[in-house]
Amino acid sequence: MVTVNMDGLLTTEQAAKRLGIKVESVYTFARRLDGFPEPIRIGRTLLWPEGELDAWRAAHPARHRGST
């Protein structure tokens, strides 16, 4: 039996909330953006390394849309 340490791993929903984006955007970023953290797959579940997401966000600050 394999034991997986889940500390520091986020579900897709938690990752989206942490990054301030939609869940769909997490999947899109993973497919299309070079350098976006790779998820860890456990069965059908994707888990995202918290530290790597934080580092990615620090290097790519959120863009705020201005009011016109």
Rank of each mutant, 00 (worst) to 15 (best):
G20D: 10
E13M: 11
N5K: 01
S67A: 13
K22V: 08
T3C: 02
V23M: 02
I42C: 08
I21D: 09
L46P: 04
E24G: 12
L9V: 00
H64E: 08
A55H: 01
T28Q: 10
V26F: 06
A58E: 15
L19E: 07
M6T: 15
A16P: 15
E52T: 15
P37V: 00
K22N: 13
R41L: 13
W48Y: 03
A15M: 11
E38F: 05
I21K: 06
K17H: 15
I21P: 09
V4I: 11
P49C: 02
F36I: 02
L47G: 08
I42G: 08
E52M: 13
P61N: 02
P61H: 02
A58G: 05
E38A: 04
T28M: 08
P61D: 03
S67N: 08
T45P: 11
R57V: 11
A59W: 01
A15H: 09
V26R: 04
L46D: 05
G20S: 07
Q14P: 01
V26P: 04
P39S: 06
L47R: 15
A58W: 03
R57M: 09
L10I: 06
E50D: 07
R32F: 12
S67R: 07
N5A: 10
S25A: 14
S67Q: 06
G66S: 13
I40H: 13
H64V: 10
V2Q: 04
Y27P: 06
H60E: 06
T3S: 01
Y27I: 08
L9I: 00
M6N: 10
K17F: 09
G43T: 10
G35P: 09
S67K: 08
S25Y: 05
K22G: 12
E13G: 13
T45Y: 11
L33N: 07
E24S: 08
D7V: 06
A16G: 14
P37Q: 03
R18W: 00
T45R: 14
V2K: 02
L33V: 09
H60S: 03
D54I: 00
H60P: 09
W56F: 10
E50I: 01
G51T: 05
T12R: 15
T12G: 11
K22Q: 14
I40M: 15
G35L: 12
Y27H: 11
I40L: 15
S25C: 08
A16T: 13
V26H: 03
R41W: 09
R57A: 15
S25P: 00
E24N: 12
R32M: 11
L9M: 04
T28S: 11
R57P: 03
V23K: 05
E50K: 00
D34Q: 03
